[in-house]
């Protein structure tokens, strides 16, 4: 069952002006409930514009965006959509607003007018899910970038969100922070079946998704499993994108006549394949 559907979606910035810019151009795409979709593409390919349609921060210039069957243009349904879809942006400092971590997470449920004990329970549960319980009385500005992003995710969870849209959530983080955020997102996807839409420039992160959509000039230029997408090493490079190291190395080795199986994209797979290769030749 699809959770998000774009039908012939077009979005133009500065419509009718001299600097009109068509960021999304007649996109048809549907995203299944409970799936983990990574979105790749160059800067300016329409990724962020797309993300902002999913919870109605932007509305289509033409075409339709449906979330769980509801049209984002319908104001009455928009609030429901925003409860179902949580957004996490690139800069952790721009999305935390309270002076204490647990207040920040409570902000959403408080605005729903829930009972205090219900809010308490939701906040505790959300902080636990992102492994940040220990920091509930901290001031957000004293946390690392990865911790801040996990608080932003907790804020969405406290709203019982069914879908997380993350727009380059790790771009500003160090390697440790990146690993923390990705681990948290994967856990929420696997354990709670939360639908994930994950925009990134890091190919290793996209490799853990179950689907990769490649945006180019406002359209979906390619769509498939990470294995299918990253198999096309020259094609990816031509689009100004990269592939995970393991995919690149195995592609190069195959080109140089070393017989390795197709579809290697992770380091584990490459190590295993090379081990098997040396065993055979012995």
């Amino acid at each position: 069952m699809s959770f998000i559907e774009f039908h012939d979606l077009t979005h133009c910035y500065n419509l009718g002006q001299k600097n009109e810019h068509r960021a999304i151009d007649g996109l048809d795409l549907s995203i299944e409930k409970g799936s983990f979709t990574a979105i790749l593409g160059q800067n300016g390919s329409g990724k962020s514009t797309l993300a902002k349609h999913i919870n109605g921060l932007l509305l289509p210039t033409s075409g339709i965006c449906l979330v769980d069957g509801k049209d984002t243009r319908n104001l009455e349904e928009l609030w429901q959509i925003r409860r179902q879809v949580g957004m996490v942006f690139q800069n952790p400092d721009n999305q935390l607003i309270a002076a204490v971590v647990e207040d920040d997470v409570a902000f959403g449920p408080e605005n729903l007018g829930l009972e205090p004990q219900v809010i308490r329970a939701k906040v505790d549960e959300a902080l636990k899910a992102v492994n940040m319980t220990k920091y509930k009385n901290f001031a957000p500005h004293l946390l690392s970038g990865g911790q801040k992003q996990r608080i932003a995710i907790a804020g969405a969870l406290a709203m019982d969100t069914e879908c997380l849209v993350l727009d380059e959530p790790t771009a500003m983080l160090d390697p440790q922070g990146r690993a923390e955020v990705l681990r948290t997102v994967r856990k929420l996807h696997e354990e709670r079946g939360i639908t994930i839409v994950y925009i990134t420039h890091f190919m290793e992160e996209a490799a853990v998704a179950d689907r990769v959509v490649l945006m180019d000039s406002g359209r979906a230029a390619a769509d498939g499993t990470p294995r299918e997408i990253f198999a096309d090493v020259p094609g990816m490079k031509k689009r100004g994108l990269d592939v995970p190291l393991a995919a690149e190395v195995s592609w190069q080795l195959r080109r140089q006549g070393i017989k390795l199986p197709d579809g290697i994209i992770t380091e584990d797979e490459l190590v295993e394949a090379l081990e098997a290769y040396t065993c055979q030749s012995n």
Binding site: D174, P175, L245, A246, E267, L270, V271, L274, E275
Partner: peptide, 20 residues
């Protein structure tokens, strides 16, 4: 120091550990 070694170096270390 909380850093990761370069990806290629990491791969090569793994291969060594695997006996290659």
């Amino acid at each position: 120091a909380g850093l990761q070694e370069p990806a290629m170096l990491h791969l090569l270390h793994r291969l060594r550990e695997a006996g290659i």
